[in-house]
Design a protein around this nucleic acid. Structure first.
Ligand SMILES: Nc1ncnc2c1ncn2[C@@H]1O[C@H](COP(=O)(O)OP(=O)(O)OP(=O)(O)O)[C@@H](O)[C@H]1O
Length: 676
DNA sequence: TCTCCCTTTTTTTTT
DNA sequence: AAAAGGGAGA
């Protein structure tokens, strides 16, 4: 392979960062300026300079991003797929997961802990809440999700339950004492169950870095630490980074304050703004060239973000040639919007665009519903990102619960989940059984564990024992085969509980295919809980070529030739619950992130009415759109006819001959949305 | 204590 | 439309 030509692949500022010396560096730069590229080349450069890959830690926002970056580093360096390349990469949570299984013993964490996802946490909190509140009606006590958010926010921002509650849900302050008691009990129960929730992964990692011996080990474990999307880290994460780099201070953080969109889960913009104070002698770098988008798109994006006060001044210049302006389109209903988008996607594909270079973005995952139907109708394959993950689906979790108790028999949530699936066993009996089971010293004692139960419950218990004993005795190692034993018994329950059981069964089949690649239960359990989907190992290769439907949050850091941002209404974007000024500014940043994903084509659309379970609702365009200059948009026949139709009741006919006109000499009519 | 059936509510983003 | 809560009877 030809020697890597770093100079040629990067601009001067990027090159400076990539080849910078030791010590702390911060890159604070706008969207599409090549921050991620710089980080990737930095990793490659370090290895090229002789740094061992295992001495580099790369922290990213999703595991997918980490894997892609590591692959890119590999290919830059010409390292084949078969050779080892042990660079550490992943999200904070997944790295914590790995480290805690190695070093956790020192702080009282067993290596076989299982992980609670947010649904599991809610379930445990619901049980605890019932114990504390007794039979007070549901209306007068906080929901499990609310409890979870309060506790989680307090963990992630290092504040008390009191402050967290005051900030997030002040209306519940009268019940503060309950919140505190429940939080304490929740903590105790997790410990007893040998489980960690997402927050614990970070908290205990931080505690590890403060441990007298392990802390030293970790501070020397890596020589270079690279962090992407630093604007969306929280206080705990910043402390982890600080402690890890105590010895060498070789840290490179990149981010953009204008793209901070996770404050709802305690991400704190001060991390990036105060980075230079925290790391003395830190060099701050700026990148001011946008390589991603056309000047027209960038101009629109800049105006979107300009409406926010309070931000780091950035000067972004586009290098791409002029192209078409973004389009703003009003459609009459969410169905028409879906029809229009699907049609336009069809046209783009017909004109030769690769479907994988097209994305549809939205504020909330359910906004994609009508569009999904329309795409199915047209036979356009798509990949959905955001919303419920594969491993969070109820039926997947049902069958995984059996594996979880085999891996960690103390897991209360998993046990209760299994037990309550059976006839005659409800919350009370489940809890009793769980308590008796904790007399066991290991899962092997389960095989002949006798219980005194009522007839129905007793019958159910023997069914449960049946499945689990078989798994214990068989000593089958392949996870796929183990799952088959479980699914065999689970099928009847599945079809009796769900009307869409066929589809759910397909999911289970997919799970079996995926899990057949694992011959070690522990490894399987450790890996799945933090996996975004299972594209990492296997699943569908064809998915890679499909149109992407994604929440804006999930689209962070990515880019496509053509981007549609749909459902830009006052009821969806900004989200109606975001009323405080900081919240609205964050929503605007989210809009900025959405718009800056586009390379060539950007479409903003909104339906003027929507059908919901409670009937028909008419909608206004998003206030973010009204704020924008209309001459930033391209006009075309469609927007004209649609708007006319809405204002004077003229019947609107979708124009089958409609084609995107690239020349835009038409200075005519724009949807008049100023006085709705 | 569990289950079944009727009533009420549902409004976001994620590791 | 679907999920979750609430209450009555077994
Ligand atoms: N020096 C360069 N020469 C050519 N292309 C570049 C250069 N730097 C960046 N790019 C391209 O610009 C695009 C955006 O880069 P990248 O994703 O790294 O930006 P970013 O700053 O991380 O964006 P975001 O803030 O949206 O995450 C990529 O397609 C990248 O390959």
């Amino acid at each position: 392979m030809a020697k890597l030509d770093f100079k040629n692949e990067l601009n001067r500022e990027q090159y400076e960062v990539v080849t910078a010396g030791k010590g702390p560096h911060l890159v604070l730069a706008g969207a599409g300026s090549g921050k991620t590229r710089t980080l990737t080349y930095r990793a490659a450069w370090l290895v090229d300079q002789g740094v061992k890959p295992e001495k580099i830690l790369l922290l990213t926002f999703t595991n997918k991003a980490a894997n892609e970056m590591i692959e890119r580093v590999r290919s830059l360096l010409g390292i084949g797929e078969k050779s080892k390349f042990p660079l550490w990469g992943g999200t904070f949570h997944s790295v914590a997961n790995r480290l805690l299984r190695i070093y956790g013993k020192e702080i009282g964490i067993r290596p076989d802990f299982t992980i609670l996802d947010s649904d599991d946490s809610s379930k445990l909190l619901k049980t605890i809440s019932k114990e504390f509140f007794g039979s007070i009606s549901e209306k007068n006590k906080p929901s499990p999700a609310l409890l979870r958010e309060t506790i989680s926010f307090s963990n992630n921002s290092k504040i008390s339950i009191e402050d967290s509650l005051e900030q997030k849900f002040p209306e519940w302050m009268p019940l503060l004492e309950y919140f505190e008691k429940i939080a304490a009990e929740y903590h105790r129960r997790k410990k007893e169950s040998n489980v960690l929730d997402f927050d614990d992964l970070l908290l205990f990692w931080k505690i590890l870095t403060e441990h007298p011996q392990v802390g030293k080990v970790l501070a020397n474990k890596w020589e270079y630490i690279l962090v992407d999307e630093y604007q969306d880290t929280n206080i705990i994460q910043a402390e982890i980074i600080f402690n890890l780099s105590k010895g060498h201070k070789n840290i490179l953080a990149v981010g953009d304050d204008a793209q901070s969109i996770y404050s709802f889960r305690a991400a704190d913009i001060r991390n990036i703004l105060e980075f230079p104070d925290k790391f003395k002698n830190c060099k701050v770098h700026k990148l001011e060239t946008n390589y991603r988008s056309t000047p027209e798109i960038l101009k629109l994006a800049n105006q979107i973000i300009a409406a926010n006060g309070n931000q780091f001044e950035k000067n972004l210049k586009a290098v791409k040639d002029n192209h078409v302006r973004p389009e703003l389109l009003a459609l009459r209903s969410n169905f028409e919007e879906a029809w229009f988008i699907a049609d336009r996607i069809d046209q783009l594909i017909d004109r030769g665009m690769n479907p994988k270079n097209i994305a549809v973005l939205f504020r909330a995952s359910h906004h994609s519903q009508s569009l999904e139907m329309e795409l199915n109708k047209k036979g356009i394959a798509y990949e959905m990102r955001g919303g419920l993950r594969f491993f969070e689906r109820a039926h997947i979790k049902d069958v995984l619960a059996y594996l979880k108790v085999l891996g960690n028999f103390r897991d209360e949530v998993a046990w209760v989940r299994i037990l309550e699936m059976y006839e005659g066993i409800g919350p009370v009996t489940a809890k009793q059984i769980y308590q008796r089971l904790m007399e066991m010293a290991s899962i092997d004692e389960l095989v002949d564990f006798k219980l005194d139960l009522a007839a129905k419950a007793g019958n159910s218990w023997s069914k449960i024992l049946d499945v689990l004993s078989r798994l214990i005795k068989d000593k089958e190692k392949n996870v796929g085969k183990m799952l088959n034993v479980i699914i065999d018994k689970y099928s009847d329950y599945l079809s009796s509980k769900y009307t869409d059981y066929r589809q759910r069964h397909d999911d289970l089949d997919q799970l079996v295919i995926f899990s057949s690649e694992y011959d070690e239960l522990e490894l399987f359990l450790h890996e799945i809980s933090l996996q975004e989907s299972f594209s990492g190992r296997q699943a569908s290769k064809e998915n890679k070529e499909n149109v992407v439907l994604s929440t804006v949050h999930q689209a962070k850091g990515l880019e496509w030739d053509a981007v549609f941002v749909i459902s830009m209404t006052d009821q969806s974007f900004p989200h109606p619950l975001c009323v405080r000024e900081e919240e609205r500014e964050e929503e605007r940043r989210l809009f900025y992130v959405a718009a800056t994903r586009a390379q060539k084509y950007l479409y903003l659309t909104y339906p003027m009415s929507m059908f919901r379970y409670d009937g028909h609702k008419s909608l206004k365009p998003s206030p973010f759109i009204i704020d924008l200059d209309s001459n930033l948009f391209q006009h075309n026949d469609l927007s004209r006819s649609v708007t006319y139709a809405s204002s004077d009741g003229v019947e609107y006919e979708p124009d089958p001959d409609y084609h995107d006109s690239n020349d835009d000499g038409d200075d005519g009519f724009l949807p008049d949305i100023s006085n709705w």
